[in-house]
Amino acid sequence: MKTNLLSIFALALFFAGAPNTSTYQIGDSIADFSLKNVDGKEVTLSNYADKGAIIVFDCNTCPYSKAYRDRIIDLNSKFASKGYPVIAINSNDPQKSPGDSFDEMVSYAAKHDYKHAYLYDADQSIAKAFGATNTPHVFIVKKNAGKMVLNYIGAIDNNTKDAAAADKKYVEDAVEALLKGNKPETTKTKAIGCTIKWTS
């Protein structure tokens, strides 16, 4: 109970609104970016992605991110070796959400044994470019003649509470389709999530 109360308290942080600008759409080429990883090294999308990448706007503090944490880890172990590594990006303003500072990211990634990249979008420019609004919010890109083309935007699956009860695994299905050279059947989904805590 104590932990429960503590985590509720930790989550009762100050979030801010999402900008409503039109951004990358399915089929668009993504501009390359470099951000600092929790290991201190810069990760550049075009180098890190082999055949493509599963980009997840994520954070330490959101209950939905926590609910999906193991599934995000599993996506990386399943697809990194097939050319689609997970690149998690935290864009939350640590002023608004102290639990999402770079230092907190480093310890969170260590605690949960992250094998995937966990990058810090300090000026929130990447979240804005993608039009990410909440966490976790997934964008799958596929390398095509040197360009990174957006093929899926949305949720991981259709059951936040219970991975086993999810009967639509949007991200897995999309990556499997791309690996076979097909277009994903579902390219856009929506899910409830925590608003990215924008710098006001």
């Binding site: 609004t133 919010h137 949720a155 259709n158 929506k190 899910a191 409830i192 608003t195």
Partner: peptide
Amino acid sequence: VDYNSWIDKVDNRWSGAIP
């Protein structure tokens, strides 16, 4: 929790972020 099944019924402009 199958959010994709009802978010657009509220408003199709809604991405799913709260509030």
